[in-house]
């Protein structure tokens, strides 16, 4: 008799704790989620760029989601240089064809994968980019060749809306 009573009490207390814990969890979530990007930030997720004025050998930098995006119209030399690299020489093996669908245009996030600085154009040992913060060298395809950065510079989602317009995001 008394044992049965204890069980019921235990069940009651356990249920109370469990239901209470659910409520605490449900209350904490809004306080955490409010720090995520809000609706107006998410709405700005894509940007269209007019590239009609970019000549071969030139790079433009546009702002997308608060970060620089490099859009480089590569010269024939640079494309060949990028294609000739053997995959086994790369720290982060990626084919140039996979990074630049249209080989003339390289569109990538201009953020060093080491600690987030913006690398300098046409610098470094591989004729690509060089990050002044901690000395990472990137090649003409934006791949990491030397230095502390672990991976190649990221390629964002983009598409050519027409010949002269790139939509990033």
């Amino acid at each position: 008799m008394s044992e049965k009573k204890t069980n019921r009490r235990d069940f009651l207390f356990t249920a109370t704790y469990a239901v209470g814990a659910v409520g605490v969890g449900a209350t904490i979530w809004p306080m955490i989620d409010q720090m995520n990007p809000d609706a107006s930030v998410k709405a700005l997720a894509s940007t269209e760029v007019d590239v009609s004025n970019v000549n071969p050998g030139k790079t433009i930098t546009v702002l997308w989601r608060g970060k620089p995006v490099f859009i480089r119209r590569r010269t024939q030399n640079e494309i060949e240089e990028a294609k000739s690299v053997k995959l086994e020489d790369l720290k982060h093996p990626e084919k140039d064809e996979d990074r630049a669908k249209n080989p003339e245009w390289l569109v990538m996030l201009g953020v060093c994968t080491h600690l987030g600085c913006v690398p300098l154009d046409q610098k470094g040992d591989y004729n690509g980019w060089f990050c002044p913060c901690h000395g990472s060298h990137y090649d003409t395809s934006g791949r990491i060749r030397k230095g502390p950065a672990p991976t190649n510079m990221e390629i964002p989602k983009y598409e050519f809306v027409d010949v002269n317009t790139i939509k990033i995001g």
């Binding site: 009490r9 009651l12 207390f13 249920a15 109370t16 239901v19 209470g20 659910v22 409520g23 449900a26």
Partner: peptide
């Protein structure tokens, strides 16, 4: 609804 359920549970726990 959630608060009412929890209130009832707490009420009986309190009684006990």
């Amino acid at each position: 609804v959630y608060l009412i359920i929890l209130t009832i549970l707490v009420y009986f726990s309190m009684k006990r």
